[in-house]
Simulated scan of single mutants.
Amino acid sequence: MSWARFHQNPWRLMIAVNIAVVIGVFFYKITREPYVPYIHLLVDYHFGFIKRALIGATVSLFLTKVPVWLVFALGGGVWLVTFGLFVALFRRTFGRGDAQMPLFVFMAGSPFFFKNLMHTLGHFDIYGCALAIVLLLIPARPVAFVVIAAAASGILILIHHIHFLMYVPTIALIVVLRHYLVQGIGRHNAVAGIAAVMGLSVLFLAAQFRGSMPIPEQEFVGYLRDRMADPSQARSLSFSYIWYQPLAQELRDTWQRLPSNLLGIPVFAVLIALHAPLWKYFVDLVRQLSDQTHRRIVVAGIVLISLGYLMIFAVVFDYSRWISNWAVCMFLILHAVKTLPAQRAAPPIAMHDRRTSVLGWIVTLIPRVGIVRPF
């Protein structure tokens, strides 16, 4: 692609720079110790039902000894699949013309989204994002859609029960917007929805309060050490306390860190503000919806999802991850809103507006948000 085309349409260059940034983040990531992601691959259901064990249990079906490189291979593979799914979703929802490039940059190129998912490679966040995108892509007409969404949510809770607040509410809103607002609430739909809510709630409570490791920690650590292909990674075993820590201790740890973590709030606010053209477009989409009830449901759903994230912030201190996943949830909801009947099309993000271009470049050049504190 010639430089003249880049000069004529700088959004193309932003996309190219974003690709380079992601590659840089990947090479940076593989030089770091994958402590928690690695131990997640070691834990399975050998000692019975426990929390955070589905990924490790799946790995155990194929490997008795787990190499550390699998963290990056598996995480990288899931990242590529998720990115491919998102590109397919974006093209189906908005098309592939030049006019949609600013929107693509502010979404896919956001430091909240794929760049941060690359930085958190091996963590469980991306599974929620991937399954939500799948539910935005598949047909939503039959009641089977509700069943599939419930099954996907159950898988996420078994991967990590925090998904109950992190991505399951977004999946629920996608089901409401794509299925219930179109099909209405019939008897079968209502029964499926109520059963899904009740079943997922029980599963979450079981994982949260009955999912602790039932054996002494020393025995558990010994089992994990036997599953390691590389004994030099034994430092990861210091995180075995995760499967023994009660909710009360998680709350104490989070609130002890709260004063320092709150210092990052202004940074998060600035990062959110940098996406102003995207938020304006989102507001325009909601305002243009034909049905006032649809608008109210969308707003109520966004409020409830945000309240769920506030609850996460009170319990677990990985603030950079949570604010990033909140933004991703907003991006995905935007796609669902776009499919609803509208009075007229919302104007796309301006390609040639100077302020929008500057914000696009800033968003492009920020490599990630982080895990706990900003950057």
Rank of each mutant, 00 (worst) to 15 (best):
M1V: 10
F6A: 10
N9M: 09
M14D: 01
V21K: 11
G24V: 12
K29Q: 15
I30F: 11
T31S: 13
R32L: 15
P37E: 03
P37N: 08
Y38F: 12
I39G: 01
L41A: 02
V43F: 00
V43P: 04
D44I: 09
F49E: 14
I50L: 14
A57V: 01
L61E: 13
T64G: 13
K65F: 04
W69S: 12
V71Y: 00
F72S: 11
F72H: 14
G77T: 08
V78H: 06
F83V: 15
L85M: 12
F86V: 00
F86D: 11
V87E: 04
A88L: 15
A88Y: 07
L89Q: 11
L89R: 05
F90V: 09
R96D: 14
D98C: 02
M101H: 10
P102V: 07
A108L: 14
S110R: 05
F113S: 10
N116Y: 03
N116M: 05
L117M: 15
L117A: 09
T120I: 07
L121A: 08
L121T: 08
G122T: 05
G128R: 03
L135D: 02
I138S: 03
P139I: 01
F145L: 05
F145N: 00
V146I: 15
S153D: 05
L158S: 08
H160K: 15
H161G: 03
F164V: 04
P169T: 11
I171H: 01
A172M: 10
L173E: 07
Y180M: 11
Q183G: 08
N189D: 15
A192Y: 04
A195C: 13
M198L: 15
L200S: 02
F204I: 09
R210G: 12
S212A: 14
P216K: 07
R227Y: 01
Q233G: 06
A234H: 12
S238A: 13
F239C: 01
W243H: 08
L247D: 03
E250L: 13
R252A: 11
R252N: 08
W255S: 11
Q256G: 10
R257D: 04
L258D: 04
N261G: 10
I265W: 11
P266Q: 06
P266C: 02
A269F: 12
V270T: 09
I272N: 05
L274G: 08
K280T: 08
Y281F: 13
T293N: 13
I297P: 06
I297M: 05
V298L: 08
V303A: 12
L307S: 10
M311L: 15
V328H: 06
M330N: 11
F331T: 07
L332I: 07
L334R: 05
H335W: 00
H335M: 11
K338A: 14
R344A: 13
A345H: 08
P347L: 09
P348T: 00
D353F: 09
V358N: 11
W361L: 15
I362H: 12
V363T: 13
I366R: 09
V369Y: 04
I371G: 03
V372M: 13
F375P: 00
